[in-house]
Simulated assay, not measured.
Amino acid sequence: MMLNHKKVAIIGAGPVGLTMAVLLQQKGVEVNVYERDLNAQTRVWGGTLDLHKESGQKAMKKADLLDQYYATALPMGIKIADEQGNILFTKEITPENRYDNPEINRNHLREMLLGSLADDTVIWDMNFTGMEENDGQWLLHFKDKPDVKADLVIGANGGMSKVRKYVTDAEVEETGTFIIQGDIPQPEKSCPEFFNWCEGKRVMTAFEGNLLVANPYNDGALTYGVIFKKPEQWGGTDILDFHDTEQVRHFLSEKMASWCRLYHQLFQSTSFFVGLPTRRIPLDKPWKNTRALPVTLIGDAAHLMPPFAGKGVNTGLLDAFILSENLTEGKYQTVAEALEDYEQKMLAYAKEAQLESSKNELEMREINFTFKSLIQ
């Protein structure tokens, strides 16, 4: 195998980086994952993830984790409501669709993947700052930590990846949409009326260019996102202070003033807000074909896209599936050939995923948008 006696360094212990490590380690590859989080108990914040059969679940199956994913994830129905709380459409969970794309908490997914790796695979508290060629290997630099050597570097450290510049000159750009995400611990006590109204289903509401998506079951919390076109007067900065919970509550209450009190209960019960401008990485620029040593990208580091088609993590897991096969199945003579084939394939399917996400994003900002077309 081309990676015999070679060391692989994966930067980033998100679901894509960890899955990549599992798939390589199962083939006997020497691999370490370097993650800036302090330790494995550091909470990963954010909404649940749903893994699709043709991509995310495909990678889980190859990693021998599909049954564990099914046992851990929660199949969830969907309610579409109007701004007055009237139910317009309901999608129930059935024996036929329960395994289509069940939702899994990000921390539970991380725990599942870590449990499939050797104990010393992930090196925590390692904030990657850069790398350079050194005697035929990469010399990786970390903030206030010793340097590390590797023969192959895989950047899996998200949309703002510092590995990207070694592979492409493409720069992250905003798409014009903004998401305010809220987190409500113990929603059955904090906002019981809204929590009970969800009936265990995800709730989606759209009205006059404002959209809300809520999930009542996210490891004991209710998480939701309010999605809207970023106001032009905000310019390149966010005018809200997301550490000031009351300010954000007031903004949402004013913005959604015509929505019924059910939604306002949600805003007033929220204890934690985050503001997220949606971003993408243009994929029309060719990647660098002259690199000092083997290095590539997977996941958001390679193809960051808005979250409006459920394709982000699933495309990243497909990256891990294809790249791990290229590197371990004996189809290629050199690492460079394996990377080139992976990147050609990835750029093609990632462009399709980005286009679908962008199409949905533009439709979702329309005044008369309905979610129904996206979930059937």
Rank of each mutant, 00 (worst) to 15 (best):
E173H: 12
P75F: 02
A81W: 07
L18Q: 06
A21P: 01
I93S: 07
S357L: 08
Y34F: 15
G14T: 02
V213E: 00
K91N: 08
P102V: 08
W138F: 04
L152Y: 00
K345I: 12
D300G: 05
V153A: 05
R202E: 13
M256K: 04
F267R: 03
T245P: 04
E103K: 12
K351W: 01
M131W: 01
V31C: 05
N215W: 09
T270L: 07
V226H: 01
E35Y: 08
Y34D: 05
E356I: 09
M160N: 13
F207W: 11
E361T: 13
G130P: 04
T296R: 03
N210P: 00
F128D: 01
H5G: 06
F89S: 04
A336G: 06
Y263M: 05
E352A: 14
A63Y: 01
T334C: 10
E232H: 11
D50A: 12
W124D: 10
M160D: 10
G47W: 00
Y99A: 00
N360Y: 06
T177E: 15
K58G: 05
L38P: 03
E352C: 03
G155V: 06
L222E: 02
G85A: 03
L297Q: 06
L114Y: 06
T129K: 14
D82T: 09
R98H: 13
E103F: 07
L88N: 08
T168R: 09
A257W: 00
K229T: 14
D241S: 05
R43D: 09
S55I: 01
D341K: 11
G275V: 11
F251L: 03
A336W: 10
H243L: 11
T223E: 13
V248L: 04
F369S: 11
L24V: 10
L327N: 00
L293G: 03
F228V: 09
F242K: 09
A73P: 04
N196S: 15
N196E: 15
L339I: 15
D64V: 12
I179M: 11
S358M: 15
H303Q: 08
H243P: 06
I239E: 13
A81Y: 03
P307Y: 04
I184G: 00
I281M: 02
D144M: 10
N127D: 15
F228W: 08
K91Y: 07
K372N: 08
M126G: 05
R43C: 06
W45R: 11
S357N: 03
M2D: 04
A309E: 02
Y70D: 01
H264G: 07
A350L: 02
L318S: 03
V313S: 08
H264D: 09
C260P: 02
V29Y: 01
L374F: 12
T168M: 12
K288A: 14
M1W: 01
M256Y: 03
E361I: 01
K201E: 05
F321H: 15
L374I: 12
T121E: 07
N360A: 09
R249P: 03
L38T: 14
C198A: 15
P277Y: 10
V33S: 06
G225R: 09
R261S: 15
W259H: 03
D284F: 01
L74E: 09
E174A: 11
K162S: 12
D100L: 05
L109V: 10
C191H: 04
E352H: 10
N107M: 13
I80F: 01
A13L: 08
Y349V: 06
